[in-house]
């Protein structure tokens, strides 16, 4: 995005508010764009994903990704019947034309109605959801650019669901585990569950990123064999035959990372670029 313009808007906004109200608190409010002071040290890191649409045409790959995410994050396994719009989804698949309405012209080489693409949170550079959240339960993590979600602070106002242009946020309309036994039998104990009435979304497997970070911090040599953390969906796609490289994950701040290389070498598109949110999931068409 146009960095100068953004910075100008931010500064002008804080100045106007500060002058208007004569309230130093306001300035503080505008300048701390995130949670804590520790996070203020802005870093160039930004986790990003490149999705190969051609490889993902294989339904087995898409299904594997979606299923892996469900298991990893204890997503409710049984979406209510007759209520598809109430499904909790972090990564899902839908028609090209519903995801890329501004790209799907009628002379497209491939009938866009037949083309299914994998969709997930874009971890935008200027996330619309973060702007509107009244409790900062969702925020842009400055250290690595992930749009995080605290399901235990969320009040369930659904402002973010309404504001996100990518449909990446789901509300828990009912108990995620209506059956008490489900959570014992099926749930992955390593991931916290959530309650009914809160919003959730993809976090690029922030828990895996953290474990990776801990390992790398302990033993920097690991970076050679494991240059980036591997989200559950990426791992799942790589395991399916023909799915290697269908999803690639890496740091845009590192020019040697896999995603940086792919973006340099090949043409990619993003969802709804015109909105100015700066999505960080790229599609190889």
């Amino acid at each position: 995005m146009d960095e100068n313009r953004r910075n100008f808007l931010k500064k002008a906004g804080s100045a106007a508010l500060g002058l208007g109200c004569g309230f130093p608190l306001l300035m503080a409010g505008c300048s701390t764009n995130g949670h804590s002071s520790e996070e203020n040290s802005s870093s160039p890191n930004q986790w990003a994903m490149v999705i190969d649409v051609q490889k993902c045409k294989e339904p087995a790959i898409r299904a594997a990704c979606i299923e892996a995410c469900r298991k990893e994050h204890n997503l409710p396994t049984n979406p209510p019947p007759n209520q598809p719009a109430r499904e909790v989804k972090w990564i899902w698949s839908d028609k090209f034309e519903t995801a890329f309405p501004d790209q799907a012209h009628k002379y497209l080489a491939e009938n866009p109605a037949d083309l299914q693409v994998l969709l997930l949170c874009n971890h935008c550079t200027e996330p619309a959801c973060v702007k509107v959240c009244p409790t900062a339960a969702t925020w842009k993590r400055k250290s690595d650019g992930i749009v995080m979600m605290d399901m235990h602070r969320c009040i369930g106002c659904r402002y973010c669901v309404v504001a996100c242009p990518y449909g990446s946020r789901s509300f828990n309309w009912r108990d995620p585990f209506p059956d008490r036994n489900d959570i014992d039998k099926q749930a992955r104990k390593e991931y916290p569950t959530r309650s009914r009435g809160v919003v959730e979304k993809c976090t690029f497997c922030a828990e895996r990123i953290r474990l990776w970070q801990e390992r790398v911090d302990k033993d920097p040599k690991l970076l050679e064999s494991e240059p980036a953390p591997i989200p559950a969906c990426v791992e799942a796609a790589n395991r399916v035959a023909g799915g290697e490289g269908a999803l690639r994950f890496g740091n845009l701040g590192d020019s040697q990372s896999e995603v940086s290389r792919v973006l340099r070498d090949q043409n990619t598109i993003c969802r709804q670029l015109a909105l100015g949110t700066g999505p960080n999931v790229y599609y190889l068409v």
Binding site: D150, E190, E207
Partner: peptide, 10 residues
């Protein structure tokens, strides 16, 4: 039960 936090300040 082990809870994997998602951030250092959790």
């Amino acid at each position: 039960m082990r809870v994997v936090g998602t951030d250092r300040k959790l």
